[in-house]
Nucleic acid binder design. Structure first.
Lengths: 340, 340
DNA sequence: TTGAAAGCGCTAACAT
DNA sequence: ATGTTAGCGCTTTCAA
């Protein structure tokens, strides 16, 4: 079938070992033989079979990436950061998505380890006490979390709690005192919980009441009617909304718009993610910006370090508040009382 | 190091062949022995080395995906469609990005073939006369283009030209007669050229003048000043803009907004891509919708068909016009003459 | 039903 | 500087 190292060796009149060396350690072979080999390689358009090499060597130069999906631009941006920086170091990337499903996470990790990836970059639903992660830690295969901000595992992430707190502070600073949080499924994402804690921090330090967050199944493309009702009712609605992620913020903004609620005139909104695309909107989405591409790149840098034998390490990347169009100061309404 | 099939065989008191069979063709092994093997597998937490299997078998159950990037949600959405449907069939996906660079395309294809992927799904800058694609066609490795709408290669794509034409017709139908096209680098994308042709078709059939398209380096995050100047000048600006892709549409919308030009009051805009996110904007982006996720899924379906020995095939997926908020009817201005 | 043995294509000692 | 050879872990004839 495909031409192998043997064909090349035969044509070049050398042994297969020489072919291998000519290709991998050219310095170790006499220029004239090297040329003969390279000519043969060219003539046969020989493409070394990486499987053979990978099976034989310790390194595969393959890394596995496990993400909830790559439909959400957050993960697309991050994946871009991972792929392009890994490519620079000559590593290839295998991607598996989990749709926030624990059993799919397990399956992905298992498959990737079977493929003998050199390392793993992953976002899991819940990092704390994740059995697979602990197993990974023991297995000796380097790994790096992204987005999961965990004290016990190497990760590259923003500090979700502080970041969320800063986002909510922006709303507080604009005079809002009835701030609700809208989030994806809290049970399916430790980040969502951390961000809710940040919300509570900010609301608490302002002397306001932390309300129970409104949970939305993240796979929904539309806002459930009862939630919309809650948000659209002028007599009862919050003056500001903090959303656990940008996609959710966009979905709710659309729903509100369709219900005749104006953003930010009637209600202010702050998202979380810093989607590049959010900045292009009208009005631009106020959000807690996290450097998604850099998060991916940082994760790779850390992972590469571990692959090179350095101890595992984490990065808490800086977040930034994009105080943009969807936040407006609260216009005091003498008829409404802002205190609980 | 890692436990191998030998360890399992030893513990189960069988030969490695039996272990292999117990795992791959359980029917061919006596239940009692199979159980012994499975217990041993469990006890040693044996993870079969896919590299060994892949090297030995004809199939690797690996596919390669080559995309310009995965930062642009178009490709993220498509990648999602590919990955999740391939996963269902038990295939793993290796992703390489090219940043629209021909040499990186070549490198990606080469690497992926070295990895002995069973097939390839790719978007290239220019499909027609692409040397690597012709080589691929000969090599016997199945492949499927996405987004490249090519007559001579198996592909899954919308009909870029007709789709663009329909998008521009929307503008024509709203009374616009000074319609400009804004596009990424024409030289770096055959789709961009096809879409420009569609623009010319629609403009031509309306008896209007097809103008030279405004090209923008796609990697820019901002609109070059001279282009903005051209678009913002009230005495000279077009009444409508057709953008070769949604990201570009969003970028130009932002720039126009900052320059005080209102969309769609002062200028109407139609994009191309149908980004899910575009629908969530205010106003929602009018665009030529293409079913990105389905494009990915369709490409996989075709590829799988080819892998199963059926002849290569293509899908032209239906596009749809999302006649949304960024298009407004032209309000006739008696002072301005709409004829060339 | 099971085992022995031959390789898949490659790298890396070791020998020359 | 080059060749010989022994595997890497697995699947798959072929025999038993």
């Amino acid at each position: 079938m495909a031409t192998t190292i043997h064909d090349v060796a035969e044509l070049a009149g050398t042994s297969i070992a020489t072919v291998s060396r000519a290709l991998n350690e050219p310095a170790k072979v006499r220029p004239s033989t090297r040329d003969r080999v390279l000519i043969a390689v060219e003539a046969l358009s020989f493409r070394p079979n990486l499987l053979g090499r990978q099976l034989r060597s310790v390194r595969t130069r393959l890394i596995g990436v496990v993400l909830p999906d790559v439909f959400n631009p957050v993960f697309g941006e991050c994946m871009q950061g991972i792929e392009e920086s890994a490519a620079v170091s000559g590593y290839r990337v295998m991607l598996m998505t989990t749709c926030y499903d624990a059993s799919r996470e397990a399956h992905a990790i298992d498959t990737l380890l079977s493929q003998r990836v050199d390392g793993l970059i992953l976002t899991v639903a819940e990092a704390a006490g994740h059995p697979l992660l602990d197993e990974l830690a023991c297995s000796g295969v380097p790994y790096q979390l992204v987005y999961n901000h965990s004290p016990s595992h190497p990760c590259a992430s923003v500090d979700n709690r502080s970041a969320a707190r800063d986002g909510v502070r922006l709303l507080v600073a604009h005079g809002h005192c009835k701030i609700l949080m809208l989030t994806g499924n809290l049970a399916a994402s430790d980040r969502a919980v951390q961000r809710y804690q940040g919300y509570c921090d900010a609301v608490g330090e302002a002397g306001l009441v932390a309300e129970v967050p409104l949970q939305v199944d993240f796979n929904e493309r539309r806002l459930p009617p009862h939630i919309l009702q809650r948000l659209a009712d002028p007599s009862n609605r919050p003056t500001a909304l903090f959303c656990g992620n940008d996609l959710l913020a966009l979905v709710v903004m659309r729903a509100l718009r369709e219900a005749g609620v104006r953003v930010p005139a009637d209600i202010s909104i702050v998202g979380f993610d810093g989607l590049a695309i959010g900045e292009l909107l009208t009005p631009p989405l106020a959000t807690v910006y996290q450097p998604n591409r850099d998060i991916g790149a940082a994760a790779w840098r850390h992972l590469l370090g571990t692959l090179d034998g350095r101890p595992a390490s984490s990065s808490i990347l800086p977040h930034r508040i994009r105080a943009d169009g969807t936040v407006a100061p609260l216009i005091p309404n003498p008829l409404l009382e802002c205190l609980p």
